[in-house]
């Protein structure tokens, strides 16, 4: 455990120093995108990985957070930074409603219900033009020209999110979550109010995802329903980040975010211009192959199956700690 702490500490320090060493705003931008995905992936992981409630609708909370910040500017003339404060809480309020509807269902039915929920929110955002501006989207001019404030803010949020989940999973709540995942009926018979704890997991998850959404609005300066309520690019991507990195591991989603964003950018830019252009057109296929590979050979993700991977590369029998 101590060694683990040291590793994490060194890594955090490196990330803190990164933007001071690497001045290119392009790399800073990529890391900011990674941090956003760390938050979304970790939040998804808390609900799906630990509490066992697989959500296909995390775009709901991301979108609500983003629109909270955006609407504050367009309708009330309040700085979108207040949205950072409010976005998480509005997402929680929405989560209460989503939980009230969806937690009546279990397993795949819950997943389908959240999937439908995401699409419903997207359609509402498209059609409620008086509030959301519809497909025209919301545009704000970002506060800072420099990327440093965004970098440190997103880093802080990602770190806080991981830490919070780490602490929760060591507390009584964490054990309740896992027991619900393993066998909801058994947990219920043990006297755990499963409905309450599922809702707690959802609320925490929604809070951080909403924060990420509000941050996205502040940072990107432009949102429309297809961007922030996207099934494909938000809800599914959240699942992929979790699965590739490692479901029900603390650092899994963080590793997943690095891999997914890194891979996408590497392929999109044809290995940063080193490979021929046609490589860039293959990024969708690479994603597909990666997911198939992970599901078939590393069902626990990169972090969860690290032993397997290290055995493969170093032919050494690693000991599970």
């Amino acid at each position: 455990m101590k060694k683990g702490n040291l590793t994490v500490g060194i890594f955090a320090l490196l990330l803190l120093l990164f933007p001071l060493v690497v001045r290119s705003s392009y790399y800073q931008h990529l890391l900011i995108i990674i941090f956003i995905w760390v938050i979304i992936g970790s939040s998804w992981n808390l609900l799906a990985g630990y509490a066992g409630q697989v959500s296909f609708g995390h775009a709901i909370f991301f979108g609500v957070g983003a629109y909270t910040a955006g609407i504050l500017v367009t309708k009330l003339g309040v700085s979108a930074w207040w949205g950072m404060l409010l976005g998480g809480f509005i997402a929680m309020a929405v989560a209460l409603f989503v939980g009230w509807v969806c937690f009546r269902l279990r397993g795949p039915y819950f997943a389908l219900a959240t999937l439908a929920g995401g699409e419903i929110f997207r359609l509402i955002a498209i059609n409620w033009e008086s509030l959301t501006e519809g497909m025209v989207g919301i545009l704000i001019i970002p506060t800072f020209k420099s990327k440093l404030p965004y970098y440190y803010l997103s880093f802080g949020l990602a770190a806080a999110c991981i830490l919070a989940i780490h602490l929760i999973m060591r507390s009584k709540w964490g054990y309740y979550f896992v027991s619900i995942r393993e066998d909801q009926d058994a947990a219920e018979s043990m006297g755990i109010n499963t409905n309450r704890y599922k809702n707690i997991a959802l609320l925490v998850s929604a809070f951080f995802t909403g924060l990420a959404g509000a941050f996205y609005m502040n940072y990107m300066g432009f949102i429309d329903p297809d961007v922030v309520f996207s099934l494909h690019y938000i809800s599914i991507m959240a699942i992929l980040v979790g699965i590739v990195g490692g479901v029900a591991t603390i650092m899994g989603p963080a590793v997943g975010a690095v891999v997914m964003v890194g891979l996408q950018e590497t392929f999109r830019s044809s290995f940063f211009g080193l490979a021929p252009q046609w490589v860039s057109e293959g990024h969708a296929i690479v994603f597909g192959l990666l997911v198939i590979f992970v599901i078939m050979f590393m069902a626990n993700g990169i972090v969860g199956d690290w032993n397997k991977i290290s055995r493969l590369f170093w032919r050494r029998k690693a000991v599970r700690t």
Binding site: K3, T7, S24, V255, V258, G262, N307, S310, A318
Partner: peptide, 21 residues
């Protein structure tokens, strides 16, 4: 052991970015 390997892997990935930059 596994954690340090992970660290080296990530460092390698990071340095790849830096070299690219």
């Amino acid at each position: 052991m596994k954690k340090s390997l992970m660290l080296w892997g990530l460092l390698l990935a990071l340095s790849f970015f830096l070299v690219g930059g």
